[in-house]
Design a protein around this nucleic acid. Structure first.
Ligand SMILES: [Mn+2]
Ligand SMILES: [Mn+2]
Ligand SMILES: [Zn+2]
Ligand SMILES: [Zn+2]
Lengths: 140, 140
DNA sequence: TACAAAATTGAATTCATTACAATTAATAAT
DNA sequence: ATTATTAATTGTAATGAATTCAATTTTGTA
């Protein structure tokens, strides 16, 4: 419990992000919920324990975390941004039936042709859509 | 000229999409402009020659084309949808400096691990971001 | 404790997209 | 060719995620 809190605080200090109650709570929420939440979901998940919380603070916080590389955006939906605290290389699968977003491993080194050799690549995103195993089972 | 028009009409008829002046103009625009335009860009590109055009018609038309598989969406930006008349498998690179979107070839068969073996995959999207060759050159 | 800088808050605003009902156009039947 | 049926187009209003901004509060520092 305390160890976790300290590690979260250290993570922010390492990135030169000033500590605030709201930022700690958001980061704690992201660490506990690896379900690629939207700003609205984070807000609704925290407003019970942080009554003064504003949705603008969520957006400000996500911007600060994105800038620092603590989280990364998941743009698998066209109408809202999701956030992922797992920043390592992996792909995302969105089930159009249940809405769940699955992580999957991938090997991006073998993906590209030489066409982008002279380009500076800052981020790589792989998004798949379809129907997940569970939903296929329940439809049979 | 006429040959192109006929091929465009045939493309719509094959997909059981009723012909309309607006749909033909939009499809002609998409065929002539392979730059992944937004609904707004298509609207502004056509309103000169189709004065009665409504932006709602653009959205309705894109929905019909998407449904028929004539075009595919490009969600490389979080705030607006782009459309691509090239539906074959390829990736997209967005230059954060000049805003251009580049196509590139990719080999998706070698990409995935077995984790999605039991999943039904309907669409695959690969989005890279960074700085393009031209912009790197002009900054040197 | 006191000060300066930065973060939080909420209300107002923006803007892409959608909903909807009236009008117009396209296709089929006569 | 005229009419009837059906679908598409249009403009306006509504939606909702995200942004702007100024006032207030909090944080880090001395
Ligand atoms: Mn993930
Ligand atoms: Mn393309
Ligand atoms: Zn599912
Ligand atoms: Zn560029």
């Amino acid at each position: 419990m305390l160890a976790e809190d300290n590690s979260i605080q250290d993570m922010l200090r390492e990135k030169n992000i000033r500590l605030s109650h709201q930022r700690l709570m958001v980061l704690e929420y992201m660490s506990a919920n690896h379900n690629h939440p939207t700003a609205d979901q984070i807000f609704n998940g925290l407003k019970g324990t942080v009554p003064s919380l504003s949705k603008t603070t969520i957006y400000n916080t996500m911007d600060a975390f994105l800038e620092a590389g603590i989280i990364r955006p998941v743009n698998i939906e066209d109408n809202e941004v999701r956030y992922d605290i797992v920043t390592g290389e992996h792909g995302h699968f969105k089930c159009d039936s249940c809405g769940r977003i699955y992580d999957f491993d991938l090997d991006l080194d073998h993906l590209t042709s030489g066409q982008l050799a002279a380009f500076k690549i800052d981020s790589r995103d792989v998004y798949f859509r379809g129907t997940c195993k569970e939903c296929l089972k329940s439809k049979s």
